[in-house]
Design a protein around this nucleic acid. Sequence first.
DNA 1: CATGAATGAGTATTCATTCAT
DNA 2: CATGAATGAATACTCATTCAT
Lengths: 200, 200, 200, 200
Amino acid sequence: MPVAKSKANGKHETILAAAVRVFAEEGYFRSTVSQIAREAGVADGTIYLYFQNKEDILATFVRQHSLQFFEAFSERVKEAKTAVEKLRLLVNLHFTVAQRDRWKALVYQVEMRRSSRLMRKEIKDALKAYHDVVGQIVEEGQQEGSIRHDVQLGLVKRMIFASVDEVITTWVLAGGKYDLAALADPLVDLFLKGISSGPA
Amino acid sequence: MPVAKSKANGKHETILAAAVRVFAEEGYFRSTVSQIAREAGVADGTIYLYFQNKEDILATFVRQHSLQFFEAFSERVKEAKTAVEKLRLLVNLHFTVAQRDRWKALVYQVEMRRSSRLMRKEIKDALKAYHDVVGQIVEEGQQEGSIRHDVQLGLVKRMIFASVDEVITTWVLAGGKYDLAALADPLVDLFLKGISSGPA
Amino acid sequence: MPVAKSKANGKHETILAAAVRVFAEEGYFRSTVSQIAREAGVADGTIYLYFQNKEDILATFVRQHSLQFFEAFSERVKEAKTAVEKLRLLVNLHFTVAQRDRWKALVYQVEMRRSSRLMRKEIKDALKAYHDVVGQIVEEGQQEGSIRHDVQLGLVKRMIFASVDEVITTWVLAGGKYDLAALADPLVDLFLKGISSGPA
Amino acid sequence: MPVAKSKANGKHETILAAAVRVFAEEGYFRSTVSQIAREAGVADGTIYLYFQNKEDILATFVRQHSLQFFEAFSERVKEAKTAVEKLRLLVNLHFTVAQRDRWKALVYQVEMRRSSRLMRKEIKDALKAYHDVVGQIVEEGQQEGSIRHDVQLGLVKRMIFASVDEVITTWVLAGGKYDLAALADPLVDLFLKGISSGPA
DNA sequence: CATGAATGAGTATTCATTCAT
DNA sequence: CATGAATGAATACTCATTCAT
């Protein structure tokens, strides 16, 4: 069964991978199409056989990376029974994926947000998908009775997303020196119990 | 006692204010030094009498904005007795300031992170200051007994900073349509009590 | 007797015809070899089996179009007895041919002159052939006594060629809205009698 | 009395003159902005302080050259009494101007027609001005009785313009080897008396 | 003969920064 | 202090042409 011709020889992937490496090292704006081509071992013009322009490379990566993440989550979420378990799983997966390929994480966390017009949509889509997942989990938890009803869903989504995102970004920028995945459970505990000592 | 010469005629501030407006409207990278000069009503070259380069304008704004924020906080924190009150005050102030000048907030929240080398330091400094303040509050709360001891301080700092930051950014990008300050208390409640319904 | 291989399956003509359409619509310089290939229904590389390069396509068309024109003239000139009749026939044919296929005329009149090196020769050849024909007619007329002897042949040739050419070009660029052939006789009358009212 | 600042130091003219030389030698399309800059002794970027883009340089030259030509004609036409004298003057001036600066003539005659969109208008304007002048002369001649009434004005205009144009172009492309101005009167004679020997 | 993926040379244009006035 | 004309490095993108299949 033949795959799409333009992807048959994997040049699409080769270029994408090369671009991620270059973006991670140089930053999106300082990266040059020629650099990416060199890193990918192709001619400059070849880039444009597979991507519309420089920004499209980044957008494609973001789209694809998001997709893979949520597919993986969909797959693994079946293991979880309760909403809390699902939340732990989500955060864990996020941290694990980031730890597995720091370059991808760097681009996804930091460089993605630098571009513009075209990117805005990709970022929005990715964020929305994340928010939706969190939202479902929270609502499920409320039905189960494990999560309070007197919370503003919008705030909860933002708190969880932003915190996870920030912890990863910090780890990435610190050079990936420590064990990121180990922070998943403590962070989820914070989400669940808060920092207050009393019964509030 | 004479003020610094470069600030004597207020041209420094004029340029800074103009730059913030331009950055907010065009985005840092698409902004042009000429645009800023025109907006400020000075010649292009004049910019370089008051700032080292384009990036320095942004860095100066960030530095100054941070400074003002923490000065204001230092002033107002005296009103607060407990750590929890201080936390509420911090978040409230952050939201209020953002709401007061959305353009500044836009640049501070969004554009600041787009630049590089030079900015890295400014961002770090600003973050560190914020983290320090949060850290002090949390430790104070722990001594008071109002905040649990079994939390990782680093995670708490990041959670609080990232969540506040994200809520503001969302508000800014949404065009400042709703009342931001009203979200301060609910958000702090989330920090304190978490989302879990049980006694944990 | 086999025909030239490259013309056996008519692909040569197919490409040529496609090119003329593309050149006419886009202009020579904005036209792309890929566009021509697509219009002709062949692969990009196939073009180069039948033509040396982009310019050669245009040159070939010009050469061929000129040839056909002068063959047609040679054929029809037999009908004419006097030099004046031949001149009328030449101009008439030129106008009629242009009117029959405006796209070809557009390329021949306008685009032909845009290319360079290689084209210079083709244009020269085409012009020379035209000049030769006019020259023969004029000389014949001088022998017949119908055309003055005190004219500079070079100027006469240029006047006739340029005027016919210009009238066609104007018609082409105007979108072929009016009847071009009807202008042949009035134009020849101008050549013959001039604009002066007196007996000169 | 100060001239417009941007033209005060003649850089506008310097660049224009340099461009004409480069266009004449290399042809418009093969000419490079860098070449023009070098020839003018300025930096590449300086070109864009005085012209919008490459094509604007050519357009400016054409506009200016046309203007100068018609101003000169307006001035000198006062010397002429009859329509025929005016016609001789027009053709003479055209030939003389071309002979005076062959480079300008080369660009005006040959390169001008190569560009596109923007140029279309300039060419049209220049042609129209020429046609108008010829048209006025012919009509004046008809009123005087020196020019026949049974001619199509449109054809006469085209014949005269095209013939003059072609004779100049031939001279230019031949390298300006012979005396162009000497051809003015014989050519006008052709226009007036035609080539026919009989009393028509 | 035919294909079309790959090539890579070639270029207009922008804009942060400088410096003579 | 202020100006703004001049600089020139830096870069994404196109497209005619080739050649392995």
